[in-house]
Structure formats: structure tokens, C-alpha cells
């Protein structure tokens, strides 16, 4: 069955409103995308939506009580809640390095959680 779906591309700040023509597991056409990122986005968003997740973890003896962290790559959207719960369990020790791996391969997603900045020790 051929159907049309509307999506807003979040690949960049432009935010194109895409019209995707879909036949079951096949994308027949993507319209109104300003660039090719829209094609990849439509494919990804319809069959396996993913998101970047940014949050923070507690840090002991740090300049601040928290250090911001994020997923090095997008993770499956349905896993956001579980990944957040996993990150919440962690408490690390200062000093923390910029891009330091905080959780390796979080919940077998193949994605590391890394520190967004350095956090000096007090």
C-alpha cells in the first residue's frame, strides 16, 4: 500500500518539511528536501529513528558537581529512556578530560558516552 508521510528533517537548522512516499518497506520518493541529508534522514527516521542524547553525570571532587556528557553517535530513539537511566547510575572522579569515555558501548548500542568538556579537580 502506497502512503505519504510528512517528516521534519532535523539534520541541520534548516528543518525541511519532507514528504515521503512509502510502499511498505520501500521509500519510493522523498520530496521538498533541500539537500541529500534529507534522503538519509527519511530512510533512518522511518525505519530506525535515532537521536543524539546529551545529559550530565555526577562528578566527585570536580570544579562543578556535574560534568556534561553525550552520545558520541545517535542512538535508537526507543532506547533514550534506558540510556538515561544507565547514565544516571554513573558517578566519576575528577579530573575529567574533554572527550573522555564515561560509558563504553552503552547498553550494547555500539555508542560511547563521552564527556563534553574537561572538569578540573578542586
Amino acid at each position: 500500500m502506497v502512503e505519504k508521510r510528512k517528516l521534519i528533517c532535523i539534520s541541520c537548522p534548516v528543518g525541511c518539511e519532507l514528504t515521503v512516499t512509502l510502499d511498505g518497506d520501500n521509500i519510493l520518493e522523498v520530496e521538498d528536501n533541500a539537500c541529500k541529508l534529507g534522503l538519509d534522514y527519511a530512510q533512518q527516521e522511518i525505519f530506525d529513528p535515532k537521536r543524539m542524547v546529551a545529559t550530565s553525570v555526577k562528578v566527585k571532587n570536580g570544579f562543578h558537581p556535574l560534568v556534561p556528557v553525550y552520545t558520541e553517535h545517535p542512538i535508537p530513539k526507543p532506547m533514550i529512556k534506558d540510556v538515561l537511566a544507565e547514565v544516571r547510575k554513573v558517578e566519576i572522579e575528577a579530573p575529567v578530560d574533554f572527550n573522555q569515555i564515561v560509558i563504553e558501548n552503552v547498553l550494547d548500542t555500539g555508542v560511547n558516552i563521552i564527556a563534553s568538556r574537561n572538569m578540573p579537580k578542586v
Binding site: 541541520c12 537548522p13 543524539m52 546529551a54 545529559t55 556534561p68 553525550y70 574533554f98 563534553s116 574537561n118
Partner: peptide, 24 residues
């Protein structure tokens, strides 16, 4: 530093960075 969400650097680095990483 308080904008810990990603979305920074897409124009300049062609990367999707959190605010603190962009600042760093």
C-alpha cells in the same frame, strides 16, 4: 557551558557537538 545539548558546530565543524564541546 550550560547548553549541554548537541546541535552546535554543524556549520563550522560539520559535526554535531554539545555546547561545552564547542566552547572547549
Amino acid at each position: 557551558l550550560q547548553c549541554i545539548h548537541n546541535g552546535f558546530g554543524l556549520e563550522i565543524f560539520n559535526e554535531d557537538l554539545p555546547g561545552p564541546s564547542y566552547a572547549q
